[in-house]
Design a protein around this nucleic acid. Structure first.
Lengths: 306, 306
DNA sequence: AGATTGTATTGCTTTTCTCAATAATGGTGG
DNA sequence: CCACCATTATTGAGAAAAGCAATACAATCT
């Protein structure tokens, strides 16, 4: 094992003392400048001498003059102190205006439609040189957050509840969408309408399970006519059929607006969820990450995007 | 006075810890490598975190991963540690064979004749690229030794007894020189011869006072025919006149050999003196100075040069 | 030689450091 | 989903070290 002693390296305070002595040539003066008593400095000097194996400074009528060794060490000592200061220097501020950083955000499909446009607009405004990459949320999102591959995850991602920082943005309830000219539906969508009509199911997204749970609770068996892996093309299908779909309010209102669809509040009581911002503790203090989080929060926190 | 706190700079051991964590990603492992207990390292890490205002390393399944701040500090930290090692690095050895250093030695006039040739020969042999400058001993020799303007003082220099390091080389007694064909002197130089003959006085050199003191002690008044400021030309004068001179043995034998003069032991009991090597404490540890001292000592210590 | 300035040493108090034991935390496997 | 495992953080106590006031010591200047 031979657990050997570590090489003894100089202290920052000893380096400072060395340089003060080198410039000032006085122990007493150095003591004042360091805010210590003179005996203390004398002891520090003794430590310096023992550590460097040289008297370093000798008394003369002109003060404490450096030995050749001290003369030779003045440069390296200055450099070392400077290097130490470098390490302790305050973190350079993050400046969105000039950063060329590439930000990466994990989102659900739904968020691509609802949140991304506003995020991108704000980002291009505040950080015109920055780049944005959007990554689909998946089973390895946690890992990506931890490794720094992505900066944030945005949406309803229950598996990121534990072990990650999170910030609640807004609550979501559920709505239903149907053709504005639906042959059978009136001003209200009733529970019996809901049970009778043909449905489109969106498998993507974690909210899927919430719907299933509500269906069981209401003992409803939907007539599933079409299952889609995402929201792409959903608007076109709805506006040309009599099918209905159940989805979170934010994407519902967006699609209704884009495709001229009819929005109903959901007759079945589907449990709402919270859209959150997730990040890993590793990047909790990172200025760029903090800034991005702040931007998202300022856009969405408290109020639904629609 | 508002004696403000000094900026807290990192310790060498904290730097080492930082780098070990950065590479190893484990507090426990770092503790082993640093030869400390794990709790101690945990506390050190806490100090690092407080000092740098960042968690620096966060727990993950892959160990303690660095935050962006830690990532950014790894380089500077390495540099700082390297700079500290530089300061504590052992002094580079002095290599006489390759040095181009200019050595400067203060000598008495006498030593120019007696010691310098052998010093120069040895120096050119051991340090062929070095330069030698000889400076006459004077009232400011002490200052020159202190300031580093000269490396050594060599000879009988009572004013350098206090406050300087010194090394005794050899003892000197006094001799008299006269023309080998002197009209009145025989095999021995008696005290009455000494009192009767005409003398040459050498004012240079501190030994002058010793002669005066001896003259008073013996109640002799010399007939001073010629006073010279140094030894230059002395041989020529002695070999062409009937004058006698009193001087230290080493220069006496040298001049006698060079000029074919007759050497007498001095009939008057002049107090001997010690030829010493003098240097200032400031250069006591300087390898070059030490080497030069050692060279002089090896040449002259213990035995007179003649 | 005495006075003065400046550095080193001493004795003591306060602070800091370190470790063993233990708690807390996050990840993992049954 | 809970219990276990590995690892980090915290606590308390004993030991070591730092810092200061007083003082001794050394060199210089008047």
């Amino acid at each position: 094992m031979a657990e050997d002693e570590v090489e003894p390296l100089l202290d920052a305070k000893l380096l400072r003392l060395f340089l003060l002595l080198y410039q000032g040539g006085s122990v007493t003066r150095a003591a004042e400048q360091l805010g210590q008593s003179q005996p203390t400095i004398s002891i520090w000097l003794g430590r310096l001498r023992r550590s460097l194996n040289d008297p370093l400074f000798v008394r003369t009528a002109e003060g404490m003059l450096p030995t050749p060794r001290a003369e030779a060490l003045a440069g390296p000592a200055r450099a070392a102190l400077e290097a130490l200061r470098q390490v302790s220097a305050p973190e350079p501020a993050f400046t969105p205006g000039t950063t060329r950083r590439q930000f990466r955000i994990c989102m659900t499909d739904a968020s691509h439609i609802t949140l991304l446009p506003r995020i991108l607009a704000k980002l291009r405004d505040a950080a015109p040189l920055a780049q944005l990459e959007v990554v689909r949320i998946g089973p390895d999102t946690g890992h990506r957050l931890q490794s720094g591959e992505v900066d944030l995850a945005l949406g309803f991602v229950p598996e990121l509840e534990a072990g990650f920082y999170q910030l609640a943005l807004y609550e979501q309830d559920w709505v239903c969408l149907a053709n504005r000219d639906h042959p059978r539906l009136g001003a209200e969508l009733t529970l019996s309408d809901f049970a009778a009509e043909g449905h489109i199911g969106i498998v993507s997204g974690t909210g899927h399970a919430l719907q299933e749970e509500a269906l069981q609770r209401h003992r409803i068996t939907r007539r599933m006519v079409l299952e889609l892996p995402g929201f792409l093309g959903l608007g076109a299908i709805l506006s040309t059929t009599d099918l209905i779909v159940t989805l979170p309010r934010h994407i519902g209102t967006t699609l209704a607006g884009l495709n001229g669809l009819r929005l109903y509040s959901c007759p079945m009581n589907v449990t709402g969820f919270t859209v959150k911002l997730h990040w890993h503790s590793r990047y909790h203090q990172d200025p760029a990450n903090r800034w991005l989080r702040g931007m998202c929060a300022s856009l969405f926190q408290g109020r639904s995007p629609n």
